[in-house]
């Protein structure tokens, strides 16, 4: 589904990604872990072109994402993203947050979009917050809204950029629950996270990144049970 070929990204002299090749299949839950500064967030943000790669190619099925002629807005409708800091639209109610993109981009009627939003809101038990503003919600609630805001566009894949890192510990669970449910329903997901439990339980593939390259990639059982890369072993010994 997503194919990455020899991806490089530099910020000035700072080479953050030094050649990444990877392939994500439909229905996979790919969890990317690694120390801070390893380039994992940059990699994720390159996938939907929030960061413009310095060189290399990214393909979504048969569309070349990195080709300037490709309409990136169309790509992003198929490849949604959930952020560490939620990025809910502060000037809109929760309902408007969810219905904005479907109405503007999928030409859905207001009624249709709102009905769909209410179904999604009920799914995460936040239907009573429809008319609230983001500023009135807790972090966990905001992130659950952000996830269903992505779902409202029926994306083919969702990118998660450290979705639980900005949350108080007691709220991490409620967000992970939603993500687990999504994974079980067969959603293709690429997650940058520090939640090793999530990687082990839900991930179909786990990727370890360091110094701008993929150091090791495997199925979770093998990845955690029998790490081959020395850096990965050091890393796991610190976080587990």
């Amino acid at each position: 589904m997503i194919t990455v070929k020899n991806l490089h990204k530099s910020f000035g002299d700072n080479k953050v990604l030094r050649g990444i090749d990877y392939h994500v299949n439909k229905g996979e839950v790919v969890v990317i872990i690694g120390p801070s500064g390893s380039g994992k967030s940059t990699f994720l943000r390159c996938l939907n072109l929030l960061e413009l790669p310095t060189s290399g190619e990214i393909w979504l099925d048969n569309d070349c994402v990195t080709d300037p002629k490709t309409d990136i807005n169309k790509i992003r409708q198929r490849m949604s993203m959930v952020f560490q800091h939620f990025n809910l639209f502060n000037n809109m109610t929760i309902l408007d947050n969810i219905t904005l993109a479907p109405m503007k981009l999928k030409k859905m009627s207001k009624q249709e979009a709102e009905d769909k939003a209410m179904v999604l809101l009920k799914r995460v038990n936040l239907a009573d917050k429809a008319s609230a503003y983001p500023g009135q919600l807790s972090g966990g609630q905001k992130q659950r809204i952000a996830i269903i805001r992505s779902l409202a566009m029926d994306p083919e894949v969702i990118l998660f950029d450290e979705p639980t890192s900005a949350l108080d510990p007691e709220m991490v669970g409620e967000v992970l629950d939603v993500m687990v449910e999504l994974a079980h329903q067969g959603m293709t997901m690429v997650c940058v996270t520090h939640e090793m439990g999530f990687a082990r339980e839900v991930g179909t593939k786990v990727v370890f990144m360091d110094q701008g390259v993929i150091q090791e990639e495997n199925e979770p059982k093998e990845f955690f049970g029998n790490p081959k890369n020395q850096r990965l072993r050091d890393f796991l010994s610190k976080v587990l």
Binding site: N73, S80, M81, F83, N87, L100, A101, K104, L105, M153
Partner: peptide, 20 residues
């Protein structure tokens, strides 16, 4: 993050500016 949030949904720069 407001601009990124809008753009990541697939809204154009103009739409994100105007609505968000």
């Amino acid at each position: 993050g407001q601009m990124e949030g809008g753009r990541a949904m697939g809204l154009s720069k103009v739409q994100t500016m105007r609505y968000i």
